[in-house]
């Protein structure tokens, strides 16, 4: 194993530990406001400075990792499982099932994510779970279309015919062949969509949905610090760097895990 995958693992593990025990790494509270010390530049006291309400940015970042990773992971899991399973099903079953699923996902695709979130908030109220479902639903059509068209292609391959002839079930074909064949491009897409999911969570706050203040998330930190790009540009750097590092680490790991193409019998 090279040095990069090791660093990547270290970063991911560190992030998981931080999300589980953020209080171990800071002496501040993520929500304690100090109006007399607003927008302080980085110093030994506050290594990333303080935000517009005088809160320690480093502390907020630690807590934000927890909330954002949870939302992003949950929503991607929803998007991935819905999209890939139903996409595969669509390709294999064809006919009416394919048409119905296409219409369903086209509808989700047409309705903007903000509206999906609004609809879910009407039912479950504005909270983290609702936000995750909304983000997951609106990202699902990407996976659906991708795996449907790729699965169609795979289905023309001789070994699938062979498997079918040997009596393999539909779900077996989906999991064994389609998911594995598409693992790499799907994983790559998911990892990149992670940053979309995080940014999307922030855009939900336009309608007052999603995570409510003063709880920090990477998304709402970005949305807030964006307005200080001319006065305190270093603020924006902190959450953006975390997102960038997370994505590249996950990507490195995915590359490593999938570098040996899976042999299909």
């Amino acid at each position: 194993m090279g040095v990069w995958p090791k660093i990547a693992i270290a970063i991911i593990v560190a992030e998981i530990i931080v999300s589980l025990f953020p209080q171990l790494f800071t002496k501040y509270s993520s929500t304690a406001i100090d109006l007399s010390n607003r927008l302080a530049p980085p110093s030994t006291q506050h290594i990333l400075g303080t935000d517009s309400l005088g809160r320690d940015v480093f502390t907020r970042l630690l807590y934000a990792i927890r909330y954002s990773l949870a939302v992003a992971a949950l929503s991607l899991a929803i998007a991935f499982s819905l999209g890939v399973v139903l996409g595969g099903l669509s390709a294999i079953a064809g006919g009416y099932i394919d048409s119905a699923l296409s219409i369903l996902f086209n509808t989700i695709y047409t309705i903007p994510g903000l509206f999906t979130a609004a609809a879910i908030s009407i039912v479950v109220g504005p909270n983290v779970i609702g936000a995750s479902i909304a983000i997951g639903l609106s990202l699902a059509p990407i996976f659906y279309r991708f795996s449907r068209s790729a699965a169609k292609e795979i289905l023309t391959k001789p070994y699938i015919e062979a498997a079918k002839a040997l009596g393999a079930s539909t779900s077996w074909i989906i999991t064994r062949y389609i998911v594995w064949e598409l693992a790499k491009p799907l994983l790559t897409t998911s990892i990149y969509l992670l940053s979309d999911a995080i940014a999307f969570e922030a855009s939900l706050s336009i309608l007052g949905l999603g995570v409510q203040p003063p709880t920090p998330t990477l998304g709402n930190m970005i949305a807030e610090y964006r307005e200080y790009i001319f006065t305190a540009p270093y603020l924006l750097l902190a959450p953006v760097t975390v997102i960038a590092i997370t994505i590249s680490s996950l990507n490195t790991l995915a590359n490593k895990l999938l570098s040996n193409p899976i042999e299909v019998p």
Binding site: Y192, A199, A202, I229, L236, V240, I243, I247
Partner: peptide, 12 residues
């Protein structure tokens, strides 16, 4: 390019 979300690129 992929290190920043679209909206951050816009502001930057």
């Amino acid at each position: 390019s992929s290190s920043m979300p679209t909206s951050v690129w816009g502001v930057t």
